[in-house]
C-alpha cells in the first residue's frame, strides 16, 4: 500500500438507496477528519462536486477505497458500478442496498412497468396528462437521456466483483469508524486486510448474541404485531410471539432494536455462511410453533400478516429467489 507522498484516494457513491448510508458516514463525527487526513477524497457526489468524466479519466486501480452504497436499479447505477470497480483497488458493498437489495429490492416483486405506473399514476400522484418518463427525448439542443430502469434490482456483487461487504441499514456509525480505523492502520502498516469476500464492520453471530433479553425453550402459540401487546421488558420478544428476526440476523448492531423494545427487522442481513436469510427464518419460526394441529398452525401463521416483509424485507434481491416471478417474466 504505497503512498508515494500522495494520500491514497477515496470514493463513495450512492446508487439506488435512500441516502442514509451517507448520513451514517458523516455521523462518525470527528472520525471523519481521519478520512480527510488520510485520504484524498476524489469522488463523493453527496459531499462534493465531481463529474463522471473525471472518474473515467482516472487511471484504472488508482482509487484505493470505494464505499459503494445502493442497489443496481438502472443502467446508470450499473455503469458507475462497473466504472468504480475498474478504478478501485478495494470495492466495498456498503450498506444493505448494495449488499442484499434492501427496501428498493422489494420492488423485485413487480415488473418495471408496474413500478413506473405506481410512481406516476396513483391516487397520490397529480398527473392529469399522464406524463410518463421517456428514456430519450429530443430538445432543440439535441437528444437527452435519462437512465433506463432495469427489469430487477440487483445487488452490487450480482453486477461486479466485490472485495468486502459491510452490512446494515445503515451500517452503525461505530462500525464505520472501526473500519476506517482499520484501513488507516493498514495504511500505516500496523494491520492487515482481511481475506477478500469478508464481511467487515459486523459480528460473526446473530443479533440474539448481543441481546440481553432472557430466553427459554421457545414455544410460540401466536404471532402478534408489536403494537397489539404489552411487551415484557426482560423476556425474549420472540417468546412473547413478537416476530423478532434477531435469531437470523447478523450481529454487529449491539441488538439496537430488541434493546429498545422493538423486534429486530433484519437490517444486518443473513448470518455468516447463510445463503438464504428468509428461508432460514421461515424454518426457524416454523420450528417453534407449539402445535401439531394443521388448522391451529394455519391460524398461528396468519399472525404474520406480511410474510415477504417479515422474512425478506432487506434480503429479497440477494436471496436465492432474487425476484418474484412477474419481475422475471416481463423483463
Amino acid at each position: 500500500m504505497t503512498v508515494n507522498g500522495n494520500k491514497p484516494k477515496f470514493a463513495m457513491y450512492w446508487a439506488a438507496s435512500c441516502g442514509g448510508c451517507e448520513i451514517a458516514v458523516l455521523n462518525i463525527h470527528e472520525k471523519i477528519l481521519d478520512v480527510d487526513a488520510n485520504f484524498d477524497v476524489v469522488f463523493w457526489p453527496v459531499a462534493m462536486d465531481a463529474k463522471y468524466k473525471d472518474v473515467e479519466a482516472m487511471e484504472d486501480g488508482s482509487i484505493l477505497l470505494t464505499l459503494f452504497n445502493g442497489g443496481i436499479r438502472n443502467d446508470e447505477n450499473e455503469h458507475i458500478a462497473k466504472l468504480l470497480r475498474r478504478k478501485s483497488k478495494i470495492l466495498v458493498a456498503f450498506g444493505s442496498c448494495a449488499n442484499e437489495g434492501c427496501i428498493p429490492g422489494l420492488a423485485n416483486l413487480s415488473d418495471s412497468r408496474e413500478i413506473v405506473s405506481t410512481a406516476f399514476n396513483t391516487i397520490s400522484t397529480d398527473n392529469p396528462k399522464q406524463i410518463y418518463p421517456m428514456i430519450s427525448y429530443d430538445v432543440p439542443e439535441g437528444e437527452i437521456h435519462i437512465p433506463k430502469i432495469l427489469p430487477v434490482l440487483k445487488t452490487l456483487d450480482q453486477v461486479v466483483d466485490v472485495d468486502y461487504y459491510m452490512p446494515g441499514c445503515p451500517p452503525e456509525s461505530h462500525q464505520i469508524a472501526a473500519v476506517i480505523d482499520l484501513v488507516v492502520q493498514v495504511l500505516q502498516g500496523k494491520a492487515e486486510l482481511p481475506p477478500k469476500g469478508t464481511v467487515i464492520g459486523a459480528g460473526n453471530s446473530t443479533v440474539c448474541d448481543e441481546c440481553k433479553r432472557a430466553r427459554n425453550i421457545k414455544m410460540v402459540k401466536s404471532f402478534k404485531r408489536i403494537w397489539g401487546v404489552e411487551v415484557d421488558p426482560e423476556l425474549c420478544l420472540l417468546e412473547q410471539g413478537i416476530p423478532c428476526n434477531g435469531i437470523a440476523t447478523r450481529s454487529g448492531c449491539n441488538a439496537r432494536c430488541p434493546t429498545a423494545g422493538a423486534q429486530c427487522i433484519g437490517c444486518y442481513g443473513p448470518a455468516e455462511g447463510v445463503i438464504d436469510y428468509g428461508a432460514r427464518l421461515i424454518s426457524a419460526f416454523a420450528s417453534v410453533i407449539d402445535s401439531n394441529d394443521p388448522e391451529e398452525i394455519d391460524r398461528i401463521l396468519d399472525g404474520i400478516v406480511d410474510p415477504t416483509g417479515q422474512f425478506y424485507r432487506f434480503n429479497l434481491a440477494g436471496s436465492l429467489l432474487k425476484a418474484g416471478k412477474p419481475a422475471w417474466e416481463k423483463a
Binding site: C208, R215, C236, G273, V288
Partner: peptide, 13 residues
C-alpha cells in the same frame, strides 16, 4: 460455538 447466539430455537426440537 462461535456462531451460536444462544437463541434457543433448536432447544426443544
Amino acid at each position: 460455538e462461535e456462531k451460536c447466539s444462544g437463541c434457543r430455537i433448536c432447544n426443544g426440537l
